[in-house]
Design a protein around this nucleic acid. Structure first.
Length: 270
DNA sequence: ATAATAACCTGAGGGC
DNA sequence: TGCCCTCAGGTTATTA
């Protein structure tokens, strides 16, 4: 479901309810997510929540004894409910909080993960090969340019590969490439330094704006209070197949590339 | 080593 | 109403 702006939105939302509170206990209704939920998570008791952070698309809840590391996959969501709210179908995990709230994890497709680490989360297999955060100085035009010189892959595939840069998925790669005027399937090695600088600048701008607007709600992403993300109103190409380009009026095209819908304007992008 | 593809799942929506 | 098809904000093991 979510890319960086959506995860950041969820993270900021739950942080207000959780930090400084105590997890009294947890309930795992279904442990069979992408990776089976570990026993450390199902046996949590009376653990104070020290912090709620984000790394890539992982939400990290710091406890005195270790870290819970949550990935929402395609369809996962986290919501806050009052104590004693009855779980529904596809509700898999509850954290019972001492402020008479429940943090509830729902995930119909079960592509998500709840991992546990006794040490720094960055030592986990899933996190140790992650590239830089896109909103840090480490992700720069120079970085994109130098890292991509000998690559044969498409720009879009590069942007969506977490070992080069994290948190950019199908929405924000399509949107960034439209505003940068670059065709998604162009080989990344054909970008010159100016194009690389401009693309990175656009990506940072879009991600910041999307975070400000609370992400993009297409179907199953909502804020923890049930509100949608308003970046959907800013979409130029994503899910706009056959509609006129907002810049030039040409009809937006959609192709399948690497099993992902890929949207572009053939006049504004080259 | 690098890049493309298949697989992991459920649910919603469209066409007939 | 039902059935079959396609589609979905991601990750990862397998294949070429």
């Amino acid at each position: 479901m979510p890319e960086l702006p959506e995860i950041e939105t969820i993270c900021r939302g739950i942080r207000l309810y959780l930090v400084g509170q105590t997890i009294i206990y947890s309930v795992v209704y279904n442990k069979y997510l992408k990776v089976p939920v570990s026993n450390e998570i199902s046996s949590i008791q009376d653990q104070k929540i020290l912090s709620v952070q984000r790394r890539a698309r992982y939400i990290i809840i710091e406890l005195p004894l270790g870290y819970m590391i949550i990935h929402l996959g395609m369809s996962g969501s986290l919501r806050i409910f009052p104590l004693n709210t009855i779980p529904q179908k596809n509700d898999h995990i509850d954290l019972i909080i001492n402020n008479r709230k429940i943090l509830r994890y729902t995930d119909p497709r079960r592509f998500g993960m709840w991992l546990w680490s006794n040490n720094s989360p960055s030592t986990l297999d899933q996190l140790k090969h992650l590239g830089p955060e896109p909103l840090t100085d480490k992700f720069s035009g120079d970085y994109l340019f130098t890292q991509s010189r000998n690559k044969r892959i498409a720009v879009k595939s590069w942007l969506m590969d977490n070992k080069f840069v994290v948190g950019i998925g199908n929405i924000y790669s399509n949107e960034s490439l439209f505003l940068a005027g670059i065709l998604p399937i162009r080989k990344i090695s054909t970008l010159n330094i100016q194009e690389s600088q401009f693309l990175v600048k656009i990506i940072k701008k879009i991600l910041r704006e999307a975070i400000m607007l609370g992400g993009t709600t297409l179907r199953d992403f909502w804020h923890i209070d049930g509100k949608p993300g308003y970046f959907i109103n800013k979409l130029n190409v994503y899910s706009r197949t056959g509609k006129p380009c907002k810049k030039c009026g040409t009809l937006i095209k959609c192709i399948k590339y690497k099993q992902r819908s890929t949207f572009f304007c053939c006049k504004c992008q080259s």
